[in-house]
Write a protein that binds this DNA or RNA. Structure first.
Lengths: 215, 215
DNA sequence: ACATGGGCGTACCGTACGGTACGGTTCGAT
DNA sequence: ATCGAACCGTACCGTACGGTACGCCCATGT
């Protein structure tokens, strides 16, 4: 754990990014069985270089998770003219991005790794994933919800509760089941239903918090 | 992984249960840093006995998780005379039990361990936790939902979707944040709000699926 | 042409831990 | 009283892996 958390994007050389890619690939393949020797071999570099660049195993892991987590795409929504149609579109966009992210192999691996890590002392990975996952969603969704409330499109006592309800309606039990390796819930299985789920979540959210009867 | 999954409760001698308790305690304390030597020392038994009883490390882990996961309390609800009041009470009871289970240290540890395990090949732990967690809830909740639908108290296209919505409304982002070790979300913090959250979840569920306007 | 430094490959070390072996002790059965 | 099974404590073995050291290559600057 030699590296401090840098909120801004770390500047990695292409060679270093290749190493991080190799590490991520190994993580996805072998689970947490990531060994320094394996990374070095995969990336065709020497272990000495790994230690020079990343300090120790935790540093490499942290760099990998952070570098990858920061890549999570976040939807840009138009806040300027909010009507009910635009709001619904925004909600659906958020739901779609959240779901597609969550069911991706990379996301599953990152979350598993961070959870494994959180079981010990080392809290960094958990916070990194948290910041780039749920918290990032929250930061970007809340202003929209509040803008919609100001525009009399939504009504809720506080935006935190509204955000969490939205999160629950979208994610449901999908993430925990994927993390636990539920074999009855493949990615492709979920993927096929994304559009229906997205629409249902937006509908339900608007039913609960919309000012007018849901359209 | 010497032991096959036994669906029925394993019959462990008191001494063996003491060993499993020691293993669980170590798991809660040290995360996944569970070593056979530590268990043997904690339980005042020899490693040879551990291997004799549980086969190998995975066997011990599986036995521990399974034995503990089977202890999850499940609410008994009265299905005989369902009115809206009884239905609401049942929903709140389910929500309360689900939340109190999820935020417990034992549950967090079990889920973390199973997720760590699921990252490798060994799928057993994930399925065990899944079966005794979300799936157990589902098995017990679904009949009630269907009974309520037959009694014209609820209306939904299919009970699976209704169950999953309920799950999402109750759990929201609490579980993933706890699993990731979110320091801004302590158990006591959540505990204080359980009753309010339970009521909110039931209200929202009835708003979405109740036949009459929610009371 | 030659020095220098970054990086590759490999060999090596120390330790932690899974798994085994064995002597000693308790306890119940005969 | 004796035997044997179960079990405790401890010592031991093999291996895997984190971390270090070193020799060599190669590119770049002077």
């Amino acid at each position: 754990m030699a590296l401090a958390i840098k909120v801004n994007e770390e500047t990695f050389t292409p060679r270093q990014q290749a190493v991080l890619t190799a590490a991520l690939d190994l993580l996805v393949e072998n689970g947490d069985g990531l060994t320094m020797t394996a990374v070095a071999r995969r990336a065709s570099c020497s272990k000495e270089t790994l230690y020079k660049w990343f300090g120790d195993r935790d540093g490499l892991l942290t760099a990998t998770v952070q570098w990858q987590a920061a890549k999570v795409r976040m939807p840009f929504v138009d806040r300027s003219h909010l009507n009910i149609k635009a709001l619904r579109a925004s909600l659906e966009q958020f739901a779609r991005d959240l779901l597609t992210t969550i069911i991706g192999e990379v996301s599953i691996t990152l979350n598993r790794t961070a959870i494994t890590h959180a079981a010990q002392e080392k809290d960094d990975l958990g916070n990194i994933v948290l910041e780039n996952g749920p918290m990032a969603i929250r930061r970007r969704l809340k202003p929209i919800l509040e803008a919609a409330r100001d525009a009399r499109l939504l009504r809720f006592p506080n935006s935190e509760e509204a955000y969490r309800t939205f999160y629950g309606l979208v994610v449901r039990d999908v993430q925990i089941r994927l993390l636990l390796g539920d074999k009855g819930l493949t990615q492709s299985n979920v993927e096929a239903n994304i559009e229906a789920d997205v629409k249902a979540a937006a509908d339900q959210f608007l039913t609960l918090y919309g000012v007018k009867a849901n359209s």
